Computed example of a mutant assay.
Amino acid sequence: MAIIKVLELMASSSKSWEDAALQAIHEASRTVKNIRSVYIKDHSAVVKNNKITEYRIVAKLSFEIESKGSGS
């Protein structure tokens, strides 16, 4: 039986919300293995001089926990 754990992350990008999601996955993958999915819970943007300067997301990242297995 697989055990799935969920992390809630915040990420940002100067390009797009999609790029912010990619950045979240890229950074998390440095220490988290077996990433299965990402769910974008919320998104927002910073506006300066009537232009979006930063895209922000809150994401839930799910990953499978590796079993050490005892043979049972």
Rank of each mutant, 00 (worst) to 15 (best):
M1A: 08
M1N: 08
M1T: 08
A2S: 13
A2T: 11
K5L: 14
K5C: 13
K5T: 15
V6C: 07
E8W: 04
E8K: 06
E8P: 04
L9W: 01
M10N: 15
M10H: 13
A11Q: 01
S12A: 14
S12C: 13
S13C: 03
S14H: 07
K15Y: 07
S16R: 02
S16H: 03
S16D: 02
W17S: 00
D19A: 13
A20P: 00
A20T: 00
A20L: 00
Q23V: 15
A24L: 06
A24H: 01
I25L: 14
I25H: 09
H26Q: 11
E27F: 12
E27H: 11
E27Y: 06
A28R: 02
S29I: 04
S29D: 06
S29A: 13
R30G: 11
T31N: 14
V32Q: 12
V32D: 11
K33L: 12
K33F: 09
K33Q: 11
K33Y: 10
N34K: 10
I35V: 15
R36I: 15
R36Q: 15
S37E: 08
S37W: 07
S37N: 14
Y39Q: 10
Y39T: 12
Y39K: 12
I40Q: 06
D42N: 03
D42W: 01
H43V: 00
S44Y: 03
A45N: 02
V46T: 06
V47S: 05
V47K: 02
N49E: 09
N49K: 06
N50P: 00
K51V: 15
K51D: 11
I52T: 03
I52P: 00
T53M: 06
E54Y: 03
E54F: 04
E54N: 12
E54G: 10
Y55E: 00
Y55L: 00
Y55W: 00
R56F: 03
V58T: 05
A59I: 00
A59Y: 00
E64Q: 03
E64G: 03
E66F: 08
E66D: 09
E66R: 12
S67Y: 02
S67L: 05
S67M: 05
K68C: 11
K68E: 07
G69K: 09
S70H: 12
S70A: 12
S72D: 11
